[in-house]
Write a protein that binds this DNA or RNA. Structure first.
Lengths: 115, 115
DNA sequence: AGTAATGTTCGCGTACACACGAACAAACGA
DNA sequence: TCGTTTGTTCGTGTGTACGCGAACATTACT
């Protein structure tokens, strides 16, 4: 299993972040991570997105990780995730908060589960 | 030529906006429109993106227009564009400004022209 | 009417996104 | 060591994005 590549903060690019967040499922993931974040918790992959097949989910983890939106690291046999809020806020002030607020009002993002 | 469909403000969706802005060329367009906007000018299509073939440019106008990022309307034999800043700021406060600030620092966005 | 200017639309090719099941890899526990 | 848990990787199929040239449409000018 290739080592998980989490890009350094200065390499995070706005176009990659926007592309990552433009997919409703990934935006939902980020919403859920933001909610967990408020409780100071890290979260395992399977816990965040239990509705989707593992291979599809893994594809989305990769996009989120390589764009710099989330950080992913191994803990035992699970992979833990957290939102890279500090890095994102430092590089792109206001963007993440604005998008999260917008996503909270978007029914298409909220109700992906249930198709 | 089918009438240009500019979606009403309440139909603008955050995922569509993010997808539109995730392409470096379209982000460059938005930067240029924002600059013209400060001078109170509307801009014609050919004026904003003279480096690219017409058909490719037209493809990007459509993405930007249908996502609600820009408004496009005919004036004589030209099509004028403007950034829908008021609508975007109302629906997604802070997002556009944050992205524009981020784009200003991204060399990949700035130097598309010259490939 | 005839011509020029400005974009759109069509058709095509290439590349990549996204969905899945099957197979593989790593870590833990009995 | 053997089986379970947790994700990744591989292979496949389908759809869509993006680039271009050629053709068309609309408006304006003469």
């Amino acid at each position: 299993m290739a080592a998980l590549r989490n890009p350094p903060a200065q390499d995070i690019r706005i176009t990659d972040v926007l592309e990552a967040l433009s997919h409703p499922l990934r935006l939902l993931v980020v919403q859920r991570l933001a909610a967990h974040e408020r409780e100071g918790q890290e979260t395992s992959c399977g816990e965040v997105l239990p509705e989707i097949s593992k291979s599809t989910a893994s594809h989305h983890w990769r996009v989120l990780r390589e764009s710099g939106v989330v950080h992913q690291h191994r803990d035992g046999r699970r992979l833990l995730l957290y939102l890279r809020r500090a890095d994102l806020d430092a590089r792109f002030p206001g963007v993440l908060d604005g998008i999260l607020a917008a996503a909270a009002d978007d029914p298409a993002v909220i109700q992906i589960v249930g198709n």
